[in-house]
């Protein structure tokens, strides 16, 4: 939930680029469940990612998914990930012995003390204001610094956090005519459709109607994509025609795929098609079939 953008009271998946750059250059994870089952089961995992990496995780949904009736299997609590709050300092820790509390340790997520924990007071700062275990503050308590060296190290520290949680990010899902699975890097056929958001529904419907063999690759983590780049490139290689199917004008996911998976010098940029709809209405299977 969050900001509403686009045509009022109409639907789209058009906030990806906004969310990638919103608020300044800090690392973030953006996830789009696409269907109601995932909307139930994913958030518990996303909370764990946010706590493990101590970074914001953004959940992108759209109006069409939120306002429509769907038939879904009964929700199963065992699909929910057990909540793991990540490294914490509790009042019990504070009592166990003298607490030389360090909120900020470079290169990893330092334990977090909730306000109200005796002896662990500290500063939380947003934006580019800097806390660093600099020479003045070797114990990482978080002192104020705008020195160039501190700013540089903190920026690197913030961006290094993505590596801590790369394995936890929801993986691309392969949907073949036979069923759904985590993508293992092997598939092949005439047509490959890469989808995100609620475009997954018309894409699977079109898949069933097509005479040719078509595979759908549903991206749930839509940013960053580097950790899944090899899989995405492999999917593109193994299909004769590949298009990104999405509900915005610019082709925001296509742009992100090209930037994140094909920007290394020497990489051959593929002929990646775009099938899009941007009139405020949910895409249909007919839109896809016609475009193909």
């Amino acid at each position: 939930m969050g900001i509403s953008t686009g045509s009022p009271t109409r639907t789209a998946d058009a906030d990806l680029l906004t969310m990638i750059s919103a608020g300044g250059p800090f690392p973030r994870v953006i996830v789009s469940p696409g269907d109601v089952e995932a909307q139930f089961s994913l958030p518990s995992r996303l909370f764990n990612i946010a706590d493990a990496g101590q970074l914001p995780v953004i959940l992108l949904t759209n109006l069409w998914t939120g306002e429509n009736l769907f038939t879904a299997p009964e929700y199963d609590a065992s699909e929910l990930a057990p909540i793991d709050r990540g490294p914490r300092v509790t009042p019990e820790d504070a009592l166990a012995g003298p607490l030389d509390y360090a909120r900020y340790l470079m290169g990893r997520s330092a334990p977090f003390a909730v306000p109200g924990t005796p002896g662990a007071g500290h500063i939380v700062r947003g934006g580019n204001f800097v806390v660093a275990d600099s020479a003045d503050d070797p114990r990482g308590r978080g002192s104020y610094s705008e020195l160039p060296g501190d700013v540089k190290r903190l920026t690197e520290h913030k961006h290094a956090k993505l590596a801590l949680i790369a394995d936890m990010l929801p993986k691309p899902q392969l949907i073949t005519p036979a069923g759904k699975s985590d993508y293992q890097g092997v598939s092949g056929g005439d047509i490959g459709l890469i989808v995100w958001g609620s475009a997954v529904h018309p894409a699977t419907e079109a898949q069933a109607k097509l005479a040719e063999h078509a595979d759908v690759l549903q991206l749930r983590t839509v940013y960053p994509l580097r950790q899944h780049a090899e899989q995405i490139r492999s999917f593109v290689r193994q299909h004769a025609r590949v298009a990104v199917v999405e509900q915005n004008f610019e082709g925001q996911l296509r742009e992100t795929i090209l930037k994140e998976c094909y920007s290394t010098p020497g990489t051959v940029v593929p002929d990646l098609g775009l099938i899009n709809r941007y009139d405020g209405r949910q895409m249909t299977a007919e839109d896809i079939l016609e475009a193909l």
């Binding site: 030389d100 306000p115 005796p118 007071g121 500063i123 939380v124 947003g126």
Partner: peptide, 15 residues
Amino acid sequence: QMLDDPLHRVYGAHV
């Protein structure tokens, strides 16, 4: 935050 004794730090947020 300027005190040497970390026991007496408040919880600050520079938002």
